[in-house]
Design a protein around this nucleic acid. Structure first.
Lengths: 215, 215
DNA sequence: ATGTGTGAATTACTTCACAGCG
DNA sequence: CGCTGTGAAGTAATTCACACAT
């Protein structure tokens, strides 16, 4: 059955994980997978996978499982990854540089079209084949390349102002590496990457020899 | 009331965020905060903050709010951040280098005591003042420095084997940057950092002009 | 007044369990 | 049979709403 209700965000957040795992399975030459098998790879129950996928239609075959290639393509289509997404990256410090060089983005529908900074020594040069411009040029570049997403890799102090500029330039989705929760108007999505918090949440358990963790 | 039940993991994962925000408030000279005010900074409801904190005791004062410095120290103590945690970082590529240089870890109880790689050109040299060793030396270093946590910044292909080595060396908590879900025996914690998946989960919404996002 | 702490109510998410298709 | 798709049941997380302390 086609599902009317919007899938909850938890489900949407799991889709990329399914997609990636399917692409690994494909590389391994697997033709089909059961929810069971797929789940085992990523520590998710079979029922959860079936429920999740059922939001988007009847993607599997009873008695057989899911066709790896088909399902992969289907999920990619659902995620909007049949098209390329142009993104800009703000902040070309060590972290920004590592991100700019990382091939994992470009492989999968994400195309970094511009790097931005405020350091005069950097502006005008190229990094990883991408020109570094001044943040003031954001609006122009965003317009020219129809940029709807951005990656923020500036310090905590500058993150909010950078985000404000991005929003003004029409950016609707932001991946923020800075250790602050940034505020955005409704209609704009933000996701945070926060390694320090993740580590700190683990020290909690180490500090008290807590019992068996979940997945 | 002191709470018997273990706080759920969701709550533990929010604590570092509260702590960080409190430390910003402290830098701004704030002496006390209400759950309202704290919540507004990080897009969490006031009720949620009060509930979360109540797992750990009665930390606030009715009619007043929370004392910033006190609460900050209290949360840090809860998280086990009154002590230093020695961690090792595996993988000294561009990402590993960015992580090694990042001061945000060391500022907050996390001390990187060793870098590991397999590239003979790197082994024996220093990076950011930390010696780079061969992964085979992991057990020794882990023992000498009582290392219980690790950061994995190797490729997807090598992540699982590196994790296996870490587990064998006695590491109990792992922050994994590689785009695979790694398997660990029970008793070991893993948290994943996955920027590509986060971006892909946002393209979902951009691709269909979905209505107002949540926080 | 102001703002916490917390049971109760609500909402969200996950798992169960089974009908039904290949 | 094997394995999906899915209502129903069960858990978990969040929010409400109010007694009570300052």
């Amino acid at each position: 059955m086609d599902k009317q209700p919007m899938p909850p965000d938890v489900v949407v957040r799991r889709l990329p994980l399914y997609a990636r795992t399917l692409s690994y399975l494909q590389q391994e030459g697997k033709k089909s997978v059961s929810s069971q098998e797929l789940g085992a790879r990523i520590n998710v129950t079979a029922a959860q996978i079936r429920k999740d996928l059922s939001y988007f239609g009847q993607l599997g075959k009873q008695g057989i499982g899911y066709n790896v290639e088909e399902l992969l393509h289907h999920i990619n289509r659902i995620l909007g990854l049949s098209q390329q997404w142009n993104v800009v990256l703000i902040g070309v410090g060590p972290l920004g540089q590592a991100i700019a060089r990382y091939s994992g983005f470009s492989e999968k529908g994400i195309h970094i079209v511009g790097l931005f900074d405020v350091d005069p020594k950097k502006i005008g040069t190229d990094f990883a084949g991408i020109p570094i411009r001044h943040v003031n040029d954001l609006p122009t570049v965003a317009r020219e390349h129809t940029v709807r997403m951005a990656i923020v890799a500036v310090s905590a102090e500058h993150a909010q102002e950078v985000v404000d500029l991005l929003v003004k330039a029409g950016v609707e989705a932001i991946l923020n590496y800075a250790p602050v929760i940034v505020q955005v108007p409704s209609g704009v999505w933000v996701r945070h990457i926060d390694p320090v918090s993740l580590l700190h949440s683990m020290t909690y358990y180490l500090a008290r020899e807590a019992p068996v963790p979940p997945s």
